[in-house]
């Protein structure tokens, strides 16, 4: 008798086939379950890291705020209060109207500078281009700054965007001046109906992208761009560093 006609052989075939199919089905279910579990865990971990990052950014925001207060206090103390005290002494000792006039003008200029530092004047009526130009001008005494602008729209930017962009630019220029050892800073501003883009480049020594630790300044830039829902990228070039700030569909913020 041929083997396949033997019921025992057929029974064995059925048992083997069922066992193999069972192993395959069980393995696929287990694999799907493990995959799902891994994906859920990865998502949870991602959310946790995101929250942690946001918390750290907020903490740094507070720290930066405190630093800024200290700087303003020092500014007031060292320049304005110093000048006013000297004015008072001069007034008590010997009254010289020319000198007092000069000291009063100096004090007013200092107060104006501190006030402008805190909040640019006429923010509502001034364009981002003019604001940037205002920031750059005093720096030109210390370093060469090339400013290019390409504004292709009449859309007025809200104050929040103007102020955040100027703060970031101030931070970037200060960083370049302090750390990069650059001789030229190039600033490009481009604004269209849909896109607001600011590119700041320098020809300094750049930085090591593998260095994970970000300074307070960079974290502050990140926080500001996060606040605007914008994108930013700071990367080393062959010579120097480039920082790109990008805001898409900014009209939604108006």
């Amino acid at each position: 008798m041929e083997k396949w006609l033997d019921p025992k052989t057929i029974m064995l075939w059925i048992i083997i086939a069922i066992t193999v199919v069972f192993i395959l089905v069980f393995s696929f279910i287990r694999l799907a379950y493990l995959n799902f579990k891994q994906m859920a865990e990865a998502q949870l971990e991602e959310s946790r890291l995101k929250l942690e990052h946001q918390k750290k950014l907020l903490e740094n925001g507070i720290l930066v705020q405190e630093q800024e207060r200290t700087r303003i206090a020092a500014d007031l103390h060292d320049s304005l209060i110093g000048k006013l005290t000297s004015l008072k002494l001069k007034h008590q000792l010997d009254y010289n109207s020319d000198e007092m006039d000069y000291l009063l003008s100096e004090s007013i200029a200092d107060a104006r500078r501190i006030s402008h530092d805190l909040s640019p004047p006429m923010l509502e009526f001034i364009s981002l281009y003019e604001l940037i130009d205002g920031i750059i001008t005093p720096w030109k005494k210390n370093i060469a700054v090339d400013f290019y602008h390409d504004v292709r729209t009449d859309v007025a930017l809200p104050n929040s965007i103007k102020i955040q962009f100027t703060r970031v630019l101030q931070e970037l220029i200060t960083n370049i001046y302090k750390h990069a050892g650059a001789s030229v800073i190039t600033v490009h501003l481009r604004q269209s109906d849909r896109l607001l883009c600011l590119l700041v480049k320098d020809d300094g020594k750049g930085f090591d992208p593998n260095q994970n630790k970000k300074g307070l300044g960079l974290q502050n830039i990140e926080l500001r761009m996060l606040y605007l829902n914008g994108k930013h990228s700071i990367k080393p070039l062959r010579k120097g560093t480039s920082a790109l700030l990008l805001l898409e569909d900014y009209k939604n913020l108006i």
Binding site: L24, L31, N35
Partner: peptide, 21 residues
């Protein structure tokens, strides 16, 4: 052939389990 294929199937499944995640 059944034995051979069965062991290879186990290899393939073990590989998938090693690569989960």
């Amino acid at each position: 052939k059944v034995m051979d294929a069965f062991v290879i199937i186990l290899f393939a499944l073990a590989y998938f389990f090693q690569k989960v995640g």
